[in-house]
Write a protein that binds this DNA or RNA. Structure first.
Length: 507
RNA sequence: GCGCCGUUAGCUCAAUUGGCAGAGCAAGUGACUCUUAAUCACUAGGUUCGGGGUUCGAUUCCCUGACGGCGCACCA
């Protein structure tokens, strides 16, 4: 809608008419004392509703039905809709002229008492009304009615592009979107308390990093002018948090916005939120216990009442403890129908891959082949929470060698609904082993693997001062919220997901 | 990056074999003092995503680009 569009022009003209009536279209504040949802909820408590107390409430006009000298409207205060009943006789001549100049989308403040209309709807009987902000652009008009107790919505806004690009519109017209983001905040709050209660310290580490690390991914790069230096947006905060363990902050965590220069799909957004937490003197077994407790606790923020069954990706997922802990080799062996034994036999794994239609490239290590088999044969079938343990050494350069299984590490991933929700290790704390692992990664990098990790000398120096045995976990918060809210795409749990290109037209 | 599908009024959507681009809601004017997808009458509203082509004539067919969705690839 360009500057001169008629719908917008009409509203601009109304601004002038309002000012001529002495109405300021953009006043400074309004003191409200109620919420729509509470007023409706408490209505039944009133002895004599029609003579009940006065309430003040502010919000956006979402529907309007003028009937001559009386008007009905619904106000939306962000928590729900409440019907208003306005009579010219009661609010006065001039205010009613103002009412006639109102549009859907305008913010108003009202004062009045509660009653029930002849048709049964709980309603605010307005005694006074003020304009709080005039809206110039028409919001999409969505109507609903209740049929047999079921809400039927008309002209619902489905257009994904409009919803993501103009999230402010989406939030107004699709009220369930607000609930997703309230749940997201509640889940994060709950996890933060869970960790604080266990004497974890919340910390902040650099987003701009001279060397990126802690994960296998391609980074975004940027440049610092004053330092004339290339910097990377973090792909992970793992190495910084472990430096803090070296320093004696024995339990640390950070909700970290990470950035990875990768494709975008239902489970990947270039910037996403990761929770990482590290605990000195713990191993991965202890971290599994902690993750299990943490996520069951977090689920309560999304589904009060102790319900632990969540519908997601076409499955009913039961989060009830305990969650099975299965080794990766065992799971692959079951699905492949043949036992995978140690030490890993690369030609045999390659044959197995080919048998299951997985492309084998010459440079692939035995561990990489195992990862491929797991992703193809096992992961999609793990619906209820499962801790998959003991990943190959080659693909886990920051994880400690397994205490009894050569060629594997003490690492687990938590898989729910076929998606990776958490990744964790007994952290590698042998600095010489770590140096060797970094060197192996650099070798892969030289061979063209752009996602191989980069050797971080300062991190090695820190570890040489001494890193205690440590358990560490990373949890993909966006995916966790998807699970707990039943959303099928990561775009639905990120307020402003990354989209290509600019707004295609000014609508 | 590849394939398939889509983009028409502010919103939700139609448009026959290629033949004057329509409806509902929203908007404007008028009527209406308990309406509720309020109702009634009238009015206005379009670069059919952009560019090119075929044709007497393109929303429709062809090419190309943009954006979105889905799938694949990539991806802890």
């Amino acid at each position: 809608m360009e500057e001169g569009h008629q719908l917008r022009q009409v509203r601009i003209e109304k601004l002038e008419q309002l000012r001529q009536l002495g109405v300021e279209p953009y006043p400074y504040a309004f003191e409200s004392d109620s919420r729509t949802s509470e007023l409706i909820g408490k209505f039944e408590d009133f002895q004599e509703p029609d003579k009940g107390p006065r309430h003040r409430i502010a919000g956006r006009i979402r529907s309007f039905r003028g009937k001559g000298k009386v008007a009905f409207a619904h106000i939306d205060d962000g928590y729900g809709l409440l019907q208003l009943y306005v009579r010219k006789e009661e609010v006065g001549e001039d205010p009613y002229k103002m009412v006639k100049l109102l549009d859907l989308g305008d913010f108003i403040g009202v004062e009045g008492h509660m009653f029930r209309t002849r048709t049964g709807e709980i309603t605010l009987h307005v005694k006074s009304i003020v304009l709080l902000a005039k809206s110039l652009r028409p919001l999409p008009v969505v109507k609903e009615k209740v049929v047999d107790g079921e809400k039927v919505v008309f002209d619902e806004v489905h257009d994904k592009e409009l919803r993501y690009r103009q999230r402010y519109v989406d939030l107004v017209v699709n009220p369930e979107v607000k609930q997703v983001f309230r749940t997201r905040a509640a889940v994060i709050d709950r996890i933060r308390r869970f960790l604080n209660d266990r004497e974890y310290l919340e910390v902040e580490t650099p987003v701009l990093q001279p060397i990126y690390g802690g994960a296998a991914a391609r980074p975004f790069t940027t440049h610092h002018n004053a330092l004339d230096r290339k910097l990377y947006l973090r792909i992970s905060n793992e190495l910084y948090l472990k430096r803090l363990i070296v320093g004696g902050l024995n339990r640390v965590y950070e909700f970290s916005k990470d950035f990875r220069n990768e494709g975008i799909d239902r489970t990947h957004n270039p910037e996403f939120t990761m929770l990482e937490f590290y605990q000195a003197y713990a191993d991965y077994h202890e971290m599994m216990d902690l993750v299990e407790d943490m996520l069951v606790d977090a689920a309560a923020a999304a589904a009060p009442g102790g319900n632990l069954v969540f519908g997601w990706r076409g499955h009913d997922i039961d989060l009830a403890k305990p969650w099975p802990r299965r080794s990766m080799l065992e799971l692959i062996g079951e699905r492949a129908g043949e036992e995978i034994s140690l030490p890993l036999d690369k030609p045999r794994l390659a044959a197995l891959c080919k048998k299951h239609g997985i492309e084998v490239e010459p440079g692939m290590s035995a561990g990489k082949l195992l990862d491929e088999l797991f992703g193809e044969l096992v992961e999609p079938h793990l619906i209820n929470p499962t801790f998959v343990t003991d990943y190959p050494l080659e693909t886990s350069p920051l994880a400690k060698r397994h205490r009894s299984k050569p060629g594997l590490t003490e690492r687990f991933e938590l898989i729910i609904g076929g998606a990776e929700i958490a990744n964790a290790f007994s952290e590698l704390n042998d600095p010489l082993d770590q140096r060797g692992r970094f060197e192996a990664q650099m070798q892969l990098r030289d061979e063209g693997d752009e996602e191989a990790q980069v050797l971080d000398d300062d991190y090695l120096r820190a570890m040489e001062y001494g890193l205690p045995p440590t358990g560490g976990v990373g949890i993909g918060i966006d995916r966790l919220v998807m699970l707990l809210t039943g959303m099928e795409t990561i775009k639905d749990v990120i307020l402003f997901p990354q989209l290509r290109g600019p707004l295609k037209k000014d609508v």
